[in-house]
């Protein structure tokens, strides 16, 4: 009869668990986007982690990935990032990057807060989590 080596199990178990949690974000990079825009310098509030997957299907893609033609019709903006068009300080695009992101998120979240369906966070610290 062999004695069960608990220490061995705990050690390896912990190691595997650690690796698992380590790898997970790496593997789902597409899903949990860390909103770190270097052009904004050091962010004064904690970085926002944006769960992309959670938003798929909630609304049309082109609502966020937008672009407008001369008639102000949203023709969609491929799979670009906010910072492709919105600069840190308003330049060719009048809406700066921070404001664009804030409005983009909050306008929907505010609406969902009212309808109580698929509620998204609205308070500063609910996205900028420490």
């Amino acid at each position: 009869m062999r004695r069960i080596n608990y220490t061995f199990i705990i050690k390896w178990g912990l190691l595997i668990l650690t690796l698992f949690f380590w790898i997970t974000p790496g593997m789902s990079q597409e899903d949990r986007i860390i909103m770190n825009h270097e052009e904004l310098g050091i962010h004064s509030r904690p970085l926002v982690i944006f769960p992309h997957n959670d938003h798929e299907g909630l609304t049309e893609c082109i609502r966020c990935h937008h672009d407008y033609d001369e008639y102000m019709t949203n023709i969609g903006g491929d799979e670009g990032k906010c910072s492709d068009c919105h600069q840190a300080t308003p330049g060719s695009n009048p809406i700066n990057l921070t404001k664009a992101i804030h409005i983009q998120c909050k306008s929907c979240h505010m609406k969902s807060a009212k309808t109580n369906v698929n509620k998204g966070p609205v308070m500063c610290g609910q996205c900028h989590i420490r």
């Binding site: 004064s44 509030r45 921070t98 404001k99 409005i103």
Partner: peptide, 22 residues
């Protein structure tokens, strides 16, 4: 406070000078 000014800016398009959060 920058967070207050962000709210002013988003809602009314006006804002004052913002001090660093620290």
């Amino acid at each position: 406070l920058s967070a207050h000014n962000i709210l002013w800016d988003e809602n009314f398009g006006i804002s004052l000078w913002s001090m660093p959060d620290r």
